[in-house]
Amino acid sequence: MQKPIATTRSASGIPTGRLAIWWLLASEIVIFGGLLACYLLFRLGHPEWADAAAVTNTAIGATNTFVLLTSSFTAVLAHQAAERGDGKKAARFLVFTIIGACLFLGIKSYEWWYEISHGYTITSNGFWSFYYTAAGLHAAHVIAGAIAMGFVAKDAAQGKELQRVELVGIYWHFVDVVWIFLFPLLYIAK
């Protein structure tokens, strides 16, 4: 179907898609913000959680941070390529980003499997409940982003809907930013 005239207007000076993505991120900020505010309320009131936090594996967390930063980098390179009209190159960079997402999820699964098999489950105590919930919500966003990038890359490879490369990129950087805060909150602060 073709776009309605409404979609092609831009009274605010920002293209429709990008405006929507920013509002989407505003709503995501309050979702993640709410969860992390709850976590902080408990964490600051429960010094004993530091003992549980000490168990988390900083090396794995750091590796995952590195993977996500790199995938963000390829996402922005895809955007650069799309701006220059090179859909094929943009698609290729998006595929790299998707690989980064899969790598991230793979490392995450290994980490969880290791922790669960050592008895640290979501019911172990409050810290672990937040640990799995916050990282799980983030991982769900990683999966959603990877799927969205798959569709965008498919179109971009044929030179269609190139502006969407930027949109999915903004979303992906946001997922990255959330992880940048989750990393110290869950791994480093002990």
Binding site: S27, I29, I31, G34, L35, C38, T123, G126, S129, T133
Partner: peptide
């Protein structure tokens, strides 16, 4: 949009309390 975010996070937590026996 700006008020519902924390409750969505809270609803996930409540759902885990109900189904996964978190606390």
């Amino acid at each position: 949009m700006l008020s519902v975010g924390p409750l969505i996070a809270g609803a996930i937590m409540l759902l885990f309390d109900q189904t996964l026996n978190t606390g």
